[in-house]
Amino acid sequence: MKACIVVYPGSNCDRDVYHALKYVGVDVNYVGLDDSLDGCDLVVLPGGFSYGDYLRPGAVAAREKISHEVRRAADRGKLILGICNGFQILIEMGLLPGALLRNSSGRFVSKWVRLIVEDVDTPFTRNFKSREVIKLPVAHGYGRYFKTDSAIRVVFKYMDDVNGSDDMIAAVTTEDGRILGMMPHPERAYEKLLGGEDGLKLFTSVVEYLRRNAS
């Protein structure tokens, strides 16, 4: 089982995801824009400010060469996780529906938020309990989820209004549950020392899912 973290110019949570995946014992490596994703069972698009987010968050990164590889991995049914800027990139690529717009406050927001786990039938959330309330950090300026599709699979919802998202949506997935895009940062909550470890369950869910399917 192997995980790959795509490092875009301007990604800045790549190392954080790396540490979190290492922490749960995953074989993980970084992937550049010209690399292949062959052999990756889990592809992570990390948070950050790819290309400075200068046009729209994720817009330029979504059109990089590596996107073909990400699409190819998606077609082959590999698991894909986009966190924060990675979620924005997945949306700009059209792999997930909707749009992520400027927070309704007009400001960047960085804090711990309470979330409800809405869907525990994805490879990413099987270790959570249905409707479980968890705490994860958010840190984004463009996290307001704008819904364009009424039949979407929502995975996490905010318990309080954080950024003006439609239906308080914090994370969505594809019909088959194999591509997850989320604004909160599970990789920042894998150890008690950091103030919480609710993010850990997401990573152990993926690891157990992949181990089971590999054997």
Partner: peptide, 9 residues
């Protein structure tokens, strides 16, 4: 259409 505008919104 390729980059500058997001036709979704």
């Amino acid at each position: 259409e390729d980059l500058l505008v997001n036709p979704v919104v």
